[in-house]
């Protein structure tokens, strides 16, 4: 009797997580499948197979420009966020100061503020500075979200680093910069690669702040996708979505190779 209910419990448990697993990935799968639709309807299973929406995408100057914008903003965010996140995590690790205790909550806070409010706030601010609809404005906004991730990834990477190696380098007469380049960097470069990848992906995928802070000229892919979705549902958006999902899969695979999936996953929350 007890065994019977045990087996039932295990079956229910398996069923439960398999159901969630499917629910998590099915929507993405459906989006990708509908991008190959032969008709103009957004339907799953798609009616027939064709690449016409892919051709439509590559023929559309607006989408291509949005792609360029996304990459400009993404690279900018990666540079800004990685630089600030690494220096701050390094500074914090070197000496655990009270300033660091104060900095950590401030760095987390933007992640908890609804992006619409961040968008409004920065729109007001950037308008006063004449930065509205500029690449720089979007890069700075995205950095508010990307930097905390870099900061926390690098903090845990630096924590695992054996600081006696640095002291040994110093004792042997190397200056701080060459100690950083020759002793510390080789040990933490995987962490840097992962945090840069994450920063790029976050910028590439963010859209609410970008919606407020961009215009027709500077809009990124998710913003253009959103705007065209609100007019009509066409499979072109599925094509774009497929590209965005594939970029994330590739980035994730690279990150998982550099460290491992478990490590990346734990740093993302």
């Amino acid at each position: 009797m007890r065994l019977e209910s045990d087996r039932l419990g295990i079956a229910a448990f398996r069923l439960g997580y398999v159901a969630i697993f499917v629910a998590m990935l099915l929507p993405l799968f459906i989006v990708i499948a509908t991008s190959f639709s032969a008709s103009g309807n957004l339907q799953f299973p798609p009616e027939g197979f064709s690449l016409r929406w892919y051709r439509a995408f590559f023929a559309d100057i607006q989408w291509l420009r949005a792609f360029d914008n996304s990459f400009i903003v993404g690279i900018g965010t990666t540079v800004v966020a990685t630089f600030m996140g690494i220096t701050a995590a390094f500074g914090l690790e070197a000496r655990n100061s009270r300033l660091g205790d104060l900095l950590t909550p401030v760095v987390i806070l933007p992640l908890l503020i609804p992006p619409v409010i961040l968008g409004v706030t920065l729109l007001v601010y950037f308008s006063a500075l004449g930065l509205q609809s500029s690449y720089l404005g979007i890069v700075l906004a995205h950095s508010l979200w990307a930097t905390p991730l870099v900061f926390f990834v690098m903090q845990s990477v630096f924590q695992r680093f054996d600081w006696e190696l640095r002291d040994a380098g110093m004792d042997l007469g190397a200056n701080p910069i060459s100690v950083f380049v020759y002793v510390i960097l080789p040990n933490v470069k995987n962490g840097i690669v992962v945090s840069a990848l994450l920063a790029f992906i976050i910028s590439l995928q963010e859209f609410v702040m970008a919606l407020f802070l961009s215009n027709f000229q500077t809009q990124t892919i998710p913003v253009l996708a959103w705007n065209s979705l609100r007019q009509s549902l066409t499979p072109t958006v599925s094509v774009v979505s497929t590209f965005l999902v594939l970029i994330s899969v590739a980035g994730l695979a690279a990150a998982a190779l550099a460290v491992n999936l478990d490590f990346v996953a734990k740093r993302l929350s």
């Binding site: 989006v31 590439l204 995928q205 892919i221 999902v245 980035g251």
Partner: peptide, 9 residues
């Protein structure tokens, strides 16, 4: 993967 996918999708 969904976490790293845009809200739009």
């Amino acid at each position: 993967l969904p976490l790293l996918t845009t809200l739009v999708i």
